[in-house]
Computed example of a mutant assay.
Amino acid sequence: MSHRSRSVTLLNASYEPLGHVDFPKAVRMLFRQVAVVEEGDETRRIGPHPWPRVLRLVRYVFQAWLYREAAWHRGGVFLRDKHRCAYCGAKATTVDHLVPRSRGGQWSWLNCVAACSPCNARKGNRTPEEARMPLRFASPRVPLVGEIVRERRAA
């Protein structure tokens, strides 16, 4: 039996996906009446409930952690910029520093953008203004954890 077949998808009361729980936890949630079966196998039963595949929480769970600023990481830059070059819009394969590291530029959300290799090489050790390579968007921003999670799920 695979890991996915033993896990049950969990939805918030608003039908937003929250993730997966293992089968024993899903059964406990059903019998504690904190969740209901949204999708199940009617041919198999756990007491009065169909065999759960998807559970929905009875009460909405506010996930405050989704609304915090995300910690910087290289993969997050690609997700924030949707894997597109900040200069030309092509598929991004590298991370570029707006203020080059040799000039004190930091590894941070506000100083890094996704870029394709040709644009990154063309910009070189210069700022976008010096290289006459304007960004396709106003300026980099710090994303929320929820934005990164949604982009990761969509990818």
Score class of each variant (00 low, 15 high):
1 M>I: 05
2 S>P: 01
2 S>T: 13
2 S>W: 05
2 S>K: 12
7 S>Q: 14
8 V>P: 01
9 T>N: 11
11 L>E: 11
11 L>F: 07
13 A>T: 00
20 H>Q: 13
20 H>E: 13
21 V>T: 08
26 A>N: 03
26 A>G: 02
27 V>D: 04
27 V>S: 00
28 R>H: 08
28 R>G: 05
28 R>C: 06
30 L>K: 00
31 F>P: 02
32 R>K: 14
33 Q>M: 04
34 V>D: 13
35 A>S: 07
35 A>G: 04
36 V>M: 10
36 V>E: 15
37 V>C: 02
42 E>I: 02
43 T>C: 04
43 T>I: 06
43 T>R: 13
44 R>E: 09
45 R>E: 04
45 R>G: 01
46 I>Y: 02
47 G>L: 02
48 P>K: 15
49 H>S: 03
49 H>C: 03
50 P>W: 01
50 P>Q: 08
50 P>H: 05
51 W>S: 04
52 P>T: 01
52 P>F: 00
52 P>S: 09
55 L>F: 02
56 R>Q: 06
59 R>P: 00
62 F>Y: 15
62 F>E: 15
63 Q>Y: 09
64 A>E: 11
66 L>M: 12
67 Y>F: 14
67 Y>N: 14
68 R>S: 10
68 R>K: 14
69 E>N: 15
70 A>H: 07
72 W>C: 10
72 W>T: 12
72 W>A: 12
72 W>S: 12
74 R>F: 00
75 G>S: 12
78 F>T: 10
79 L>K: 14
82 K>T: 06
83 H>P: 00
84 R>A: 05
87 Y>K: 03
88 C>E: 05
89 G>R: 10
90 A>Q: 13
93 T>L: 06
96 D>I: 03
100 P>F: 09
100 P>R: 13
100 P>I: 09
104 G>P: 01
109 W>K: 08
114 A>P: 03
116 C>S: 05
116 C>V: 03
129 E>L: 07
131 A>R: 08
134 P>K: 12
135 L>A: 11
137 F>V: 11
137 F>L: 10
138 A>V: 11
139 S>D: 08
140 P>C: 14
140 P>E: 13
141 R>E: 09
142 V>G: 05
145 V>R: 14
147 E>C: 07
148 I>G: 07
150 R>M: 10
150 R>H: 10
152 R>N: 06
153 R>K: 08
155 A>F: 10
